[in-house]
Design a protein around this nucleic acid. Sequence first.
DNA 1: TTAAACTTTCAAATATTATTGAAAGTTTTT
DNA 2: AAAAACTTTCAATAATATTTGAAAGTTTAA
Lengths: 168, 168
Amino acid sequence: MELAEAKSKFIETWGKLGSEWGINRTMAQVHALLLISPEALTTEEVMEQLSISRGNANMTLRDLISWGLVEKQHKPGERKEYFFAEKDAWTIARQVAQERKKRELDPVLKALSELSQIKGDEKNPEYKAFKSSVSGINKLAGNVNKTLETMMKAEENWFWGSIFKIFK
Amino acid sequence: MELAEAKSKFIETWGKLGSEWGINRTMAQVHALLLISPEALTTEEVMEQLSISRGNANMTLRDLISWGLVEKQHKPGERKEYFFAEKDAWTIARQVAQERKKRELDPVLKALSELSQIKGDEKNPEYKAFKSSVSGINKLAGNVNKTLETMMKAEENWFWGSIFKIFK
DNA sequence: TTAAACTTTCAAATATTATTGAAAGTTTTT
DNA sequence: AAAAACTTTCAATAATATTTGAAAGTTTAA
């Protein structure tokens, strides 16, 4: 396989994965492109390499920055902005986990803990079923939350080391 | 808060969470409805309670069955099919993890390991950057994969117990 | 200050995904 | 064998999400 072919396959794969997990495909593709690029790229280059419009490239790059996955770079004597991606896989995973936790898990956790407070008639099967399902999910979500918080603080080696020590 | 209000809030919350994570909103809502229902429901009841069409209800229920989250039930003397959801949160989590691993992670893992094999000129920065990014992600994905496999086999108490012993 | 270089915005167009509902299919009962 | 009870399919439609591109905005250089 050619390097060029491998690159587009990687961009395609990463884009597909993103879209299956609720991340805009283009955003994942731009991220992939920057991930495998040794140099920071301009908006222009991103547009060309992925055949997307200026507006799309601009918005996507801003999104990636807000996710903490991409940073701007300025080259001395040039006005153009360059963009490059964090390359360390573990840092990327932590960053994504942190953002999604903040944007999506935290609100759900809040709603669940409110819902699991609800009082009612213990004789009512509707109430009992509701209560027990919601509490169960709430407890699980709490565990997921704690694990993510630990992961966000952890070093890669320590994290996987700890996990595998247990799973061996 | 009324039980009825709490129910619709739960259905709404679960639906939103699903859609943010690449699961069809209606599917998550039907799942939520069955989760909090003490009795198995008919297609008819699902249609009414969520105001969705017969076709949609049917397809969604079939999807949920293929995810292993819902099962059919037959009541003696009746021709109608009833549907009920697995209620244990840990089992649900494992089931979802298993399906998504099979449908989405495994193909990516395969693609990544192919891509990380690619040979090229060590002097070429394009090649070096590609290789190192892809290998890093590949390694991480491998760890995620192993953890999911362990999780799929594990009992809830054992799993979280193990994790928290480490993270304490 | 004006022009050039570059970035951002956003309404309109396009593409994708989900939903409907009526017709076709299937199984059971009479 | 025909009707009744129920389930499934899928082309048409609707809803949602993404993308475009030209205009407006901003910053720097002359």
